[in-house]
Nucleic acid binder design. Sequence first.
DNA 1: GGTATGACTTGACCTAGGTCAAGTTCGGAT
DNA 2: ATCCGAACTTGACCTAGGTCAAGTCATACC
Lengths: 190, 190
Amino acid sequence: MEAFNKYLQQFPHYTPKVFEQIKPHLIKKELEAGEYFLEQGRVCRSIAFIETGLLRLHYNTDSKEVTNCFCKENTITCSYSSLITGSESDIAIQAIEPSRLWVIPYISLQKLYEKDLFWQQLGRLAAENEFITTECHHRFLRDLSATDRYIQVLENEGELLQRVPLIYLASYLQVAPETLSRIRKKISKS
Amino acid sequence: MEAFNKYLQQFPHYTPKVFEQIKPHLIKKELEAGEYFLEQGRVCRSIAFIETGLLRLHYNTDSKEVTNCFCKENTITCSYSSLITGSESDIAIQAIEPSRLWVIPYISLQKLYEKDLFWQQLGRLAAENEFITTECHHRFLRDLSATDRYIQVLENEGELLQRVPLIYLASYLQVAPETLSRIRKKISKS
DNA sequence: GGTATGACTTGACCTAGGTCAAGTTCGGAT
DNA sequence: ATCCGAACTTGACCTAGGTCAAGTCATACC
């Protein structure tokens, strides 16, 4: 729980008061690897701070499964579009390591919006941040070749490669697992 | 200018007052086809309401040009990420038809945020909307084949096809112009 | 120690879409 | 009317990455 307090400290207008405000709303949730925080088709009504563990955000089409992103400890996760529109989530959120979450119901958060500027600002910053991250990831997918995408992840998120099974990493990079395997081989040689 | 007033009416909490608040801040700008509202690498410091015309939002990489979206009359356009972060825009906004814009400086908008709940809400809704649209477009690019992308645009945005040169449409659909030409031929036969 | 299982690799082949170069077509300027 | 150039089409060929099927490897379980 203290990790969440620490997380909040990075935002402008933080005071110890804000942690006291949110504390009573936090619900602890432990997930096994493979368990879901949110299933595709359900409405997302809360956000989660990840104290420990690793989750992935993914969706299924008729023909394939796509991993949108990985969310690790000391970050927040939710299906943002489902949360704000109240519609069914087109993505699922699944733990791929045993994870401890602190869940915050969206209604609690909305109440806090009215209590303190801090929360208002946090909401906006979250939205903006979400937008920019997404934009950036999509451009990464669009503009780089499969090999370059792998290299970039290798350089920027090397730690992830240790923690994520190849099959999820492949769907994150938008390549077939076989292709990723070949890319790895090629890279390790050079 | 009246078109902008009408545009505002679709949002919750609208009152005639809000239009009076923003009126003094509006700057009229006319663009020829080909002219830029914003160039890549510049900081975006305003948003524009498009009264008439058509613009496209695009960026260049070393090897190619990508059209992100088209913005038509009665909508808003800006480089959202540049606007909110104050960093150099990684996209350009160019008129592809002669266009009349009403430009709103971001600082004016920020002042309005403090004056009326309406503007606050508009800002948040804009962010959320931007996020969802972007997300949706990227999924369209990821999950559909080139042909299916074309068909979907044909069905949902048929009007656009009349107004947009093939070369821009191709870069919007993420295909080579030659491929788009072939897809068109194939579709028109069936 | 042996074997079943899931996670990854390798090989052979295929295909969507890209690339390059040579046409068309058509609307303006002369 | 005709010439020009931009916008588009067509053809021939190429390539990145996908698909399918058969390994290999490791680890956990009997």
